[in-house]
Amino acid sequence: MRNGSTRRQRAVVYLGLGVGLALVAGPFLWTALSSVKPEQEIRRDPPTFWPQTWTLDNFAELFDRVDIGTAFANSTFIALVLVATNLLFCSMVGYAFAKLRFRGRNVAFALVLVQLAIPAIVLMMPQFVLIAKLGLVNTFIGIILPTVVTPLGVFMMRQFISDLPDELIDAARVDGAREFRIFFRIILPLCGPPLATLGLITFLGAWNNFLWPAVVAQSEDMYTLPVALNILNGHEATHYNLLVAGSVVVIAPILILFVFLQRFFIQGIATTGLK
């Protein structure tokens, strides 16, 4: 009796989860499958779900219209540089907030939270004026500079390093090790898991970032993928064969990366949210 009812309950749970997954995955699948159909088939009524004819024509046309290769390289380059700077700076700053005692530490840490709360749109204009004054409009440095160290990363690294035992550091201090040596030789090697999470979060954030690159990048050779896709969307608003292909080019690399590395990410999100 009891066994029967739990089995039925489990079936209901799986049914609910399955329907939910179909609704979540549906738009992705439909977009991906549409991108490999010929343009006439995309518009055929009644619709085909599975492509009758497989073709890469949409991608060929897309690469012809827009310099996707350059945009892809720009997005990758910017994301990788930001990963490197964030790994180094966020862990340095996080270490200081976690383990070093210095005057003004609490005030400085409050600033990290303040920065987290300032909306992007509010900063966009004055940041752009500043970048213009520095002559950095339409440059990689202009796109990269404002996020070389991010408050979320500092926060994450501080949480993790706080939990490392003080004895480790005290022992090294007694041995006369300098602070930078302690940081690079003792702390950093222990930070593997949070650094992996931070690296992935930074990469995703940089890859997906739209607003700031859209403002700073002004010529096609500086566009990142989201910027290029938005421009395409403006020019070819009804050429859905091009738009779905563009959408796949922007989304697919991230999905693949994420599916392989997700365990680092989900743990990081869960703990940052809880603390």
């Binding site: 989201p226 563009g246 922007v250 989304i251």
Partner: peptide, 29 residues
């Protein structure tokens, strides 16, 4: 859990373009 989380990590521009197609009056799903 992985499936439900995927839309969250993808580019909003890419997603919005995909949904524009999904909601297209004649060809949309």
């Amino acid at each position: 859990r992985l499936g439900y989380y995927l839309p969250n990590i993808t580019s909003i521009i890419g997603i919005a373009v995909a949904w524009k197609f999904l909601l297209e009056p004649e060809a949309g799903l």
